[in-house]
Amino acid sequence: MYVFMYICSLERDLASRKLQLQENEKLLGIMAFGDSILDTGNNNNLISLIKCNFPPYGQDFIGGKPTGRFCNGKVLTDLIAEGLGVKETVPAYFDPNLQSKDLATGVCFASGGAGLDPLTSSITSVIPISEQLENFREYIRKLEGLVGEEGANKIISNSLFLLLIKYDISTYTSMLVSWTSTIIKDLYEVGVRKIAIFSTLPLGCLPILRTLHGGLMRSCGDDDNKAAELFNSKLLAEMKNLSSFLPQAKIVYVDIYNPLLDLINNPVKSGFSVPDRSCCGTGTIETSVLCNQLIPFTCDNVSEFVFWDSAHPSEKAYMIIASPILQDLKKNF
């Protein structure tokens, strides 16, 4: 009886959401694949050093508690879901408190530290993209158990899929683009039709890479940024190519390289005063990617910092970047 009532309620909710989709151009769900920029907590129970389920992470999140998001607050996955009217936050697929009802509106499969190259994920002991896709197939089976095959197909085809990886790029940008293309084809084969593929960041301007490659002045690393630009140009070309022979798919390339670079180069315009160091870390010199759990150092006013830790933007930076992204996604989806 309970199961019957739950499914009926879920079907009514889906019907209402379908009507909203027609009238307000809203989507049924949000799914995210990639790394720490989108991860909402999948690394929490892994035996890995790449996790952030400890203070001061999450100090500005709902309830002020760390959730495994690599930020002081919400990450892009949450902000896009909220901005598109799907839901306020997107739970991690491996969240032990995940509810069955959450499956119908989307979950996050991303894992901080994951890369397109399987070796990257192996070294950091996180969830590689290939395994994220397997988890998504498992998710489909669970969803079919709740709403049936037809209902699951409707949810998947009317959900937006986010794919973002802070690529570890050097000389094999073409290979990385090829792997990205294969991932999109795999998603297409299981019914995915709406995909937003994000560019990589201005890697050379991340605080950790300023310290490693920026010299005494900690300037942005030109070689790192040029590699990122090369990858992004190849990725954009491949997305255009994919769109031509996957006719039922809507693939949108989302540029976050230039918006973030603008915040870094023109911080005062957006209310920032510190674009080259992170709020949370070890002090004035960036010596590690994540905040120090044992001896945390956190700035007094995170809203003045473009970066929360040495590899991830602050929630305020994400919110500014998300604004034009949402406009673009609303226009295309």
Rank of each mutant, 00 (worst) to 15 (best):
S303N: 11
G113Y: 04
G281W: 01
V190H: 08
T298C: 10
L160H: 05
N225K: 07
L201F: 15
I285G: 07
E11C: 12
S181D: 10
L216P: 02
G113C: 06
I169N: 08
E286C: 14
G73M: 01
L28C: 08
E88K: 13
K240I: 09
M5Y: 15
L235C: 07
I155P: 02
V306R: 02
I169R: 05
L206M: 09
F54N: 09
N42S: 07
P247W: 10
D168N: 12
K331T: 14
C8G: 12
N258F: 03
Y167H: 15
N241E: 12
R218T: 05
D223F: 11
F109E: 01
N292P: 05
A317Q: 03
S174Y: 10
H213P: 05
L119I: 14
S48N: 03
S278D: 07
I156M: 05
I320E: 00
L176Q: 11
S278Q: 01
S122D: 12
D35K: 03
K101W: 10
K166H: 14
F198Q: 02
L76H: 03
N292Y: 05
G73A: 04
E11G: 06
D186G: 11
W308Y: 10
E149V: 15
D95E: 08
A110I: 01
T211P: 10
A114Q: 02
G283Q: 04
C8I: 11
K166T: 14
Y139M: 08
G151D: 04
P202S: 10
L133Y: 05
T182Q: 11
T282I: 10
C108V: 10
Y139E: 05
Q22T: 11
F61I: 08
C71L: 03
